[in-house]
């Protein structure tokens, strides 16, 4: 076996030599160190810098005035309606998209859980494929479907359900549909992965005891799926609040936070406003997620003991 040692590249072997003498836990730490350093350098450090720039003074002709301290950026965010309105729009969109997504996802995850064989694979495939498709494709595909001369309007007109075309997209309806489509795969899989560990016998027992099928779903399946529902809610909400592609391609006068902040940042002026804007949005989002978690956790607990 000693011959194989030389087959390793020399630099790697040199790096490993000192590790041989260390204890197991030190070696484990060294194996985790690269990822820890990476996360600190590329995730924690950028956020600290973002925070620091948001506390600087603005400078004419410059991105920011280095070395200064000021709350001007935050004052601007909270007093300027042009900046406040997109935050309100984004939170409304986030709430609407999340509520609809979680209900649909719960149903679809349940259907996947109950399905077997080829049908189950097909249903799972229909979730995994959109998940691994770029946002851009997922969004613009709705344009030919929802525009005034699009497929949906053709169908509605042929069936005489409407007398003239409705402009779903570009418009708020289009934004909502697109955003739901974007987050739905993540929500379905979050709920499904919890359901798949659940015992079907429990549902059968409830039915044997006389519960109707909708009732056994609400009183047995939903409480059990609560951890998955929680994850689905948090992901759907966090991503919908920050929605960029859907309002950008499917909206008409839909000024979302992401669109406004992009314009501010890419204009390369007043970075203290753009960064303060991002910090405010992130704090509001995290606070909402915390509230959602507590509320859903309590709701889940109540149902369980009922």
């Amino acid at each position: 076996m000693t011959g194989t040692q030389s087959s390793l590249p020399a630099p790697v072997a040199r790096l490993w030599e000192p590790l041989l003498e260390r204890s197991r836990s030190k070696r484990a730490l060294l194996l985790m160190a690269p990822l820890l350093v990476f996360e600190l350098l590329l995730f924690v450090a950028p956020f600290l810098i973002l925070l620091r720039i948001s506390l600087m003074e603005g400078a004419p002709d410059l991105r920011y005035a280095a070395g200064t301290w000021s709350l001007d950026g935050y004052v601007e965010v909270f007093t300027n309606g042009v900046l406040l309105d997109p935050i309100i729009y984004s939170f409304k969109l986030g709430l609407a998209a999340t509520a609809i997504t979680v209900v649909i996802a719960l149903f679809y995850a349940y259907a996947i859980w109950r399905a077997e064989g080829a049908l189950k694979s097909a249903l799972l495939f229909s979730v995994v494929l959109p998940l691994l498709t770029t946002l851009v494709i997922k969004t613009y595909a709705f344009r030919p479907l929802l525009s005034p001369n699009g497929t949906l309007n053709d169908v509605l007109l042929t069936l005489n359900l409407v007398s003239e075309p409705i402009q779903f997209a570009p418009g708020t309806v289009g934004v909502l549909v697109g955003q739901i489509y974007i987050v739905l795969p993540y929500a379905v899989l979050a709920i499904y992965s919890v359901l798949s560990t659940m015992d079907w016998g429990l549902v059968e027992a409830a039915r044997d005891l006389g519960a109707s099928r909708p009732r056994s779903f609400v009183e047995v399946v939903v409480p059990q799926a609560m951890p998955g529902i929680l994850v689905a809610t948090v992901i759907s909400f966090a991503w919908s609040v920050g929605a960029y592609a859907a309002p950008g391609l499917l909206g008409s006068r839909d000024l979302a936070f992401a669109i406004e902040v992009e314009q501010r940042l890419l204009s390369n002026l007043d970075w203290e406003i753009a960064t303060a804007y991002s910090v405010v949005m992130l704090v509001l989002m995290l606070a909402s997620v915390a509230v959602l978690t507590v509320v859903l956790g309590r709701f889940g607990g109540e149902v369980e003991y009922a």
Binding site: L42, A238, G242, A243, M281
Partner: peptide, 12 residues
């Protein structure tokens, strides 16, 4: 949200 990550990355 990717948009906020994107901003912090660009600034960085």
């Amino acid at each position: 949200p990717p948009i906020i990550l994107g901003i912090s990355m660009r600034v960085y």
